[in-house]
Amino acid sequence: MFRTLASGSEKIEIYLDGKPVPVPAGISVAAAMLQLGALPTRLTPVKRSPRAPFCMMGVCFECLIEIDGLANQPACQVEVQSGMRVRRQCGAGELAS
């Protein structure tokens, strides 16, 4: 769906649903998911319908994802970090305390 124009950019490794994948450093988790084509990024709690990032600016909350064990993080507002564990949520996600 998306490709990058910044070909030579530095890569780091994150874990997506447990599997290591290389992604460009400095971009948001949501951008990385779109570049990887890892869609949908979640299933909704209400009807389990597939969703993906929509606004990319922290307004719509469609991009919610589990990051390093914390559920419901807005993926478009969080930058990828080396070793980050990203997990797609099916349904309500774990309720963060």
Binding site: F2, T4, L34, Q35, R51, P53, F54, C55, M56, M57
Partner: peptide, 25 residues
């Protein structure tokens, strides 16, 4: 409009500015 693959134009522009990403198909 809730389907993956539908986004806002603003989102497209943010991807371009912040991640140098453009549609590939």
């Amino acid at each position: 409009w809730q389907l993956p693959g539908v986004m806002t134009a603003g989102a497209g522009q943010i991807l371009l500015k912040s991640a140098a990403m453009v549609p590939d198909n």
